[in-house]
Design a protein around this nucleic acid. Structure first.
Length: 780
DNA sequence: CTACAGACTTGGAATAATATTT
DNA sequence: AAATATTATTCCAAGTCTGTAG
């Protein structure tokens, strides 16, 4: 196995030691009630019947346009009529001439893998009792479904297919009817309960689809605040003012100091200036955006200063406006839309050293938007007067509702359903199923690339070496990138400059990966890997690719010969999930404190996050927070010490009551008429005061329990501190959301009597609804 | 075959909501 | 009750990977 260590992450404290330290009774989670309330609230709302599109039974439509969608091209003069072609003339300069020496593939020995038996001896999909939270979520869905059904007669394909339509509330045996009703509805929305027949054409994603389109950001309202040019006030035309305001919004960030950002902004800004303004404004360095910045700050503060009732009113009003956009109806079932808001104009902020940072992202107009909707569904009215949708299509081979082309990157932006939807849920489940399938192939695949390390073919040696890293280090595959993107790499695009080889067999990685997150790791590798790397870098320049004969396509093509549907990213999912499963199985809990269990889980989660290099920037106040915890700890220790001394003394003197000294912080002395600044000063003054000693008379018989309490407090603070330090630059969320099969977590929770909602937030519970019934014996 | 359009997942930061402390 | 810390959600950039036009 590979030894692994990432900089800045402290050596692991042994799990068991950490866990056993914790006796605290943290009350960190108390949102369950809210979950239920919100869900019930949601369920109670009524729906308009015209939102529903009647469906013809079983009818499947083909996508129009032969499945291909054309977006208007934002870079063209008249985006309306342009069908996109590669007019930009931008060719991928980096496409190496790798292909020329492409070697024969070597499918020979591995075809047999396909027939490999399933060596998995765990219970696979057994259903056990759903948790309480699941019951609640489920119930809420029923209510929606029922309301929907009562409101409209059109129920869509599935109901009709089932054959026995029920009449609602007519029979004498209403209760039973209702129950059956519920069962049927349950069937109806629980896509994960059924056998998903593979024989169905899974390129068809829906039969009927209706929705309300997209929500545009409000149009720009000029504030008429000037900029200062060489100290002189200049009032800009609305168009220029808007762009100036984009810049002012970023004034407090590091971006405005970056030359690339300034250069790009200045170029674009000038294009938004009138001729007159162009003449006046000659250099960005001479422009002071502070007046606009201050205006924005004042606006922010005014908003903050509203009473909570006012805030609530605004929120509710906003929700009402937005409501119709939040849902779509897919095959007769209501689904939440994920991102119905069109991205507002502003400055493009890339990550890392992005060549396009600071460019002006133009305002998206209806003409830029393609709406994808069912043929029979009413086309949503274009919400901006005098404009019309760019295009209406009926492509049921895709799952997006609307889309447009991004003016900066040329990429596509789509409106999707939310993570809790069937579309997302199904493919999420499929993703994990594929990763689980890899478990059955992994031994052979490892054999394959281990053998391939010593192949006669250079391409195969490179491929095997790359795969070795993808598997062992969970590296991303690393596609080619364009000149106008940040210079980041993955495995296949690693360059000589990104590794250092240390004899006898250590490899030091240092490169920028996705989102320009730095990957630093030194690993010891198998001999042939080290030997290969030496060969691959020999005679190359630092900026040359290590795997120059390897393409991502070639690698993925090869993987497909080893397992159907396999691609490089599956290894990340597989290794993340299997690692979690392994770590969680390492300890069995009987009746420990809940906090111990949660810490244990987090610890396992952390290991995975480190494997995947999921980092976060150090929270700004980290140091300060640690200091605060330290002084809290000191005080707790001191109090513990006092109690222990008192007990000793009482025992020695045989007294049943004893004096204990407690050092308390003086409280700030606020008066009602104090301003904020005065209050702050008062707080500061008090913080510097020495603590006052208070003498308390305590019963000797009470002391042992007091001591125990104090000890628990000390332990809790210690645990908090070590967790905080350990996690200061590790992000747990990403792996939880994207890499860890939720069924592993559900099973572990059931086995160890941990309420699932302690680990999954409300949105994650919804996202992973399909996994909630997993048996406690589920095995990844 | 190859480049690249296109669709979908993954990612950290920003922001909002909520909990805790003062 | 306000300030501050913590957690959840939203935002939108940046990956992966397949299918297809040329």
């Amino acid at each position: 196995m590979v030894s692994k260590k990432i900089e800045n992450i402290p050596e692991d404290v042994p799990l068991n030691q950490l866990i056993s330290q914790s006796n605290g009774n943290r009350k960190a989670f108390s949102r369950e009630e809210n979950v239920v309330t919100n869900l019930l609230e949601r369920a109670g709302r009524t729906r308009k019947s015209e939102d529903v599109v009647p469906t013809k039974t079983g009818k499947k439509r083909n996508a129009t346009q032969e499945g291909k969608t054309r977006f208007a091209d934002p870079r063209a003069e008249d985006s309306r009529e342009t069908t996109f072609d590669t007019e930009s003339g931008k060719t991928k300069k980096n496409k190496r001439m790798k292909k020329e020496s492409k070697q024969k593939t070597d499918e020979e020995s591995f075809l047999s893998l396909e027939t490999k038996a399933n060596g998995n001896d765990c219970v696979s999909e057994e259903v056990s009792r759903p948790s309480a939270i699941f019951d609640k979520l489920k119930k809420e869905e029923f209510i929606i479904e029922r309301a929907q059904q009562n409101n409209d007669s059109a129920k869509g394909t599935k109901r009709a297919e089932k054959g026995s339509p029920k009449e609602v509330g007519t029979s004498e045996d209403e209760r039973e009817a209702e129950e059956e009703e519920e069962e049927e509805e349950e069937e109806d929305y629980r896509w994960w309960g059924r056998d998903n027949q593979e024989d169905e054409d899974d390129t068809i994603k829906w039969t009927t689809l209706s929705h309300s389109g997209v929500l545009f950001p409000p149009e720009y309202v000029p504030h008429n605040k000037p900029i200062l040019y060489r100290g002189k006030e200049i009032y800009l035309s609305p168009k220029a003012e808007e762009v100036a305001t984009f810049f002012a919004q970023k004034l407090a960030t590091e971006y405005v100091k970056k030359p690339q950002f300034r250069k790009n902004f200045w170029e674009d800004f000038q294009q938004h200036l009138s001729n007159d303004e162009k003449k006046k404004l000659k250099s960005l360095d001479e422009i002071n955006f502070t007046p606009i910045y201050e205006h924005l700050e004042a606006q922010k503060n005014a908003k903050k200063a509203l009473t909570s009732a006012e805030k609530k009113a605004i929120r509710e009003e906003e929700q009402e406006k937005v409501k119709k956009y939040t849902v779509a109806i897919v095959d007769g079932k209501e689904e939440k839309v994920g991102n119905f808001r069109v991205e507002p104009p502003g400055l493009f902020l890339g990550r890392g050293e992005h060549p396009l940072m600071g460019k002006v992202k133009k305002r998206i107009m209806p003409e830029d938007i393609t709406i994808n909707i069912g043929e029979d569904a009413p086309v949503p009215e274009c919400p901006i007067a005098g404009h019309r949708w760019g295009q209406i299509i009926h492509n049921n081979k895709v799952t997006w509702l609307a889309g447009w082309k991004d003016s900066i990157t040329g990429g596509y932006k789509y409106v999707w359903l939310s993570a809790g939807s069937r579309f997302k849920g199904q493919s999420d489940q499929q993703k994990y199923e594929k990763a689980r399938k890899l478990k059955n192939y992994i031994d052979e695949i490892r054999k394959d690339y281990t053998k391939g390390l010593q192949s006669d073919s250079l391409e195969e040696r490179q491929r095997s070496t790359a795969l070795y890293f993808i598997d062992r280090l969970a590296l991303r595959v690393g596609n080619e990138k364009d000149e106008d993107e940040a210079d980041t790499v993955g495995c296949c695009s690693l360059r000589v400059e990104h590794i250092t080889l240390h004899d006898p067999n250590a490899v030091e990685f240092d490169f920028l990966g996705k989102d320009s997150i730095r990957y630093i790791n030194t690993v010891t590798v198998d001999g042939p890997v080290f030997y290969n790397l030496k060969e691959f870098v020999r005679g190359k320049k630092p900026e040359d690719e290590i795997f120059d004969k390897l393409t991502v396509q070639g690698l993925n093509d090869h993987l497909k010969t080893l397992m159907p549907g396999l691609s490089a990213k599956v290894f990340r999912t597989y290794n993340a999930s299997i690692t979690l499963a392994r770590l969680l199985s390492e300890r069995k809990f009987e009746s420990e404190d809940l906090n111990n269990k949660l810490t244990f889980y987090n610890q396992a989660n952390k290991e995975v996050a480190i494997l995947c290099n999921h980092q976060r920037t150090l929270p700004v106040s980290h140091e300060q927070q640690m200091n605060r915890l330290q002084s809290k700890l000191d005080e707790a220790l001191e109090w513990l010490h006092e109690l222990e001394q008192a007990l000793k003394k009482a025992k020695r003197d045989k007294k049943d009551s004893v004096e204990v000294v407690q050092y308390v912080r003086p409280k700030p002395n606020f008066r009602n008429d104090m301003t904020q600044i005065e209050r702050e000063a008062e707080r500061k003054r008090v913080a510097e005061l020495p603590r006052e000693s208070k003498v308390r008379q305590m019963k000797t018989s009470n002391l042992p329990s007091q001591i125990e309490k104090a000890e628990q407090r000390v332990e809790k603070i210690r645990l908090d501190m070590s967790m905080k330090e350990e996690l200061k630059n590790v992000a747990l969320g990403t792996s939880k959301i994207n890499y860890l099969d939720p069924r592993i977590t559900v099973a572990w929770c059931k086995k160890n009597q941990v309420p699932i909602e302690k680990i999954f937030s409300k949105t994650l519970l919804t996202k992973f609804l399909w996994s909630m019934e997993s048996s406690e014996d589920f095995c990844f």
